[in-house]
Simulated assay, not measured.
Amino acid sequence: MINTIIFDFGDVFINLRKEHSIEEFKKLGLDGPNEDLLAHNDLFEKGKIDELQFINSFTKYIPNASLEEITKAWNSIIGDFPLERLEFLQMLSGKYRLFLLTNTDSIHIERFEHKVGMSFYTDFYRCFEKVYYSYEMGMRKPEPEIFNAIIRKHDLSPKRTLFVDDKKDNTDAAAALGLHVWNLKVGEEDVVDLFDQKHLPL
């Protein structure tokens, strides 16, 4: 029986506007991400480079854009957080051990907190036994060690733990370690549908 649930954040609780962010960068002259920028994003999400180093990585490709414009475009991916998802999470928190595990960066988390306000994000964080950000952990999904670190620290039983994420690479990595998984299909499924029998093993 499941007694622990580890949740992803983006497109599970908060909606991400990926296409909108790409369009905002196009307005600044950047025609989509490239390998160099993706590599810098990986480093930023692992906390290996700081905010200024990350934002500066864009200036090579869009030299006429200001750091403020780049930051704004970067944060334009942050969408809304439906209240029913928070209410659902609050209901779950009385029944399961809950953890948040997300590949993210300090800029996005600051934007999220500013956007929803202190009362909302405090209620959200309070639902979890522990919130794990990749940039604070120095590693990111789907690296097995990020899952193992949480399992070890909190003495979790993989066979009694469910991991929910919208990226198949991440759920595949968790499944390989023995966790139950739900690879949530964005736009077709919602986290509030968790109690559909196919998503929550008994």
Results as ranks from 00 to 15, higher is better:
5 I>V: 00
5 I>D: 00
5 I>T: 00
9 F>R: 03
9 F>P: 00
10 G>E: 05
11 D>A: 07
16 L>D: 11
17 R>K: 12
18 K>E: 13
18 K>N: 14
20 H>G: 13
24 E>W: 07
29 G>S: 01
30 L>W: 04
33 P>F: 12
38 L>P: 04
39 A>P: 04
46 K>D: 09
47 G>H: 07
55 I>V: 09
59 T>V: 11
62 I>W: 04
65 A>L: 01
68 E>D: 14
70 I>C: 05
72 K>Q: 12
76 S>V: 05
77 I>W: 01
78 I>C: 09
78 I>A: 09
79 G>E: 01
87 E>V: 12
88 F>K: 12
96 Y>R: 00
98 L>G: 10
101 L>K: 08
103 N>L: 05
107 I>A: 15
108 H>L: 01
112 F>R: 06
113 E>P: 07
118 M>R: 14
118 M>S: 15
120 F>V: 14
125 Y>M: 11
126 R>F: 06
127 C>H: 03
129 E>V: 11
134 S>A: 05
141 K>A: 09
150 I>L: 08
156 L>P: 00
160 R>A: 15
160 R>Y: 09
161 T>C: 06
162 L>P: 01
167 K>E: 13
169 D>E: 12
172 D>E: 10
176 A>V: 01
182 W>C: 01
184 L>P: 09
189 E>I: 13
189 E>D: 15
194 L>T: 05
